[in-house]
Simulated assay, not measured.
Amino acid sequence: MKNCVSDGNTIDFIATAAVASGAPVLLGKVVAVSLGNVALDDVGVGVTEGVFELPKVTADDITQGAQVYIKSDGMITSTASGNTLAGKAWAAAGNPSDTVWVKINA
């Protein structure tokens, strides 16, 4: 097929700030997890499918299967207002946990 440009599992991006390997990156309404360290203004590659352990707002009590959102600082939260849908919680993560497993873009 001549018109297939990508399998949709990864996406290239230009870093608007330094990005650590494994960190979530918000690209419009798409969440990607960086495959490596990326310096400011460099091109990086992010994964757009899968389940990842991501940093969360410590005080949030997130139940398994709940919709979760990403804040502009890359933290996962249960608060929809002012944030972007990140996916679904793959496992529960109560208060005071620092991370949550997220099936991104789900």
Rank of each mutant, 00 (worst) to 15 (best):
M1F: 06
K2S: 13
K2R: 13
K2W: 05
N3C: 09
N3A: 13
C4A: 15
C4W: 11
C4P: 00
C4S: 13
V5G: 07
S6Q: 07
S6I: 08
D7H: 02
D7G: 04
G8Q: 02
G8D: 05
G8V: 01
N9S: 10
N9T: 14
T10S: 14
T10G: 04
I11N: 02
I11Y: 01
D12K: 10
I14D: 00
I14Q: 02
T16R: 14
A17W: 12
A18D: 12
A18T: 09
A20H: 01
A20V: 01
G22P: 10
A23I: 00
A23G: 06
P24D: 02
L26Q: 04
L26I: 04
G28L: 04
K29C: 05
V31R: 07
V31A: 06
A32T: 03
A32V: 08
V33A: 03
V33N: 04
V33G: 01
L35W: 05
L35E: 12
N37C: 05
V38W: 03
V38A: 06
L40F: 15
D41P: 08
D42F: 13
D42W: 11
V43C: 11
V43Q: 12
V45A: 07
V45K: 04
V45T: 15
G46K: 09
T48N: 04
G50W: 06
G50Q: 10
G50R: 11
V51P: 09
F52Y: 14
L54M: 05
L54P: 02
L54I: 08
K56D: 12
K56Q: 07
K56C: 09
V57I: 14
V57N: 07
A59R: 10
D60H: 09
D61E: 11
I62W: 03
T63H: 08
T63E: 09
Q64I: 15
G65D: 11
G65W: 02
G65S: 13
A66D: 15
A66E: 14
A66V: 12
Q67H: 11
Q67R: 14
V68E: 01
Y69H: 06
I70P: 00
K71E: 12
K71A: 13
D73R: 05
G74A: 03
M75K: 15
M75A: 15
M75H: 10
M75P: 00
I76Y: 00
T77E: 02
T77A: 07
S78P: 03
S78A: 13
T79V: 12
A80C: 09
A80R: 14
A80F: 08
S81Q: 11
S81E: 14
G82P: 03
G82E: 09
G82F: 08
N83V: 08
L85Q: 05
L85V: 10
A86D: 00
G87N: 06
K88P: 09
A89G: 05
A89H: 03
A89V: 03
A89I: 07
W90D: 11
W90F: 15
W90A: 13
A91I: 13
A91K: 07
A92P: 15
A93F: 05
A93S: 12
A93L: 00
A93R: 04
G94K: 04
S97G: 06
T99C: 06
T99F: 08
V100A: 01
W101Q: 14
V102D: 00
K103E: 15
I104C: 11
I104F: 14
A106N: 07
A106F: 10
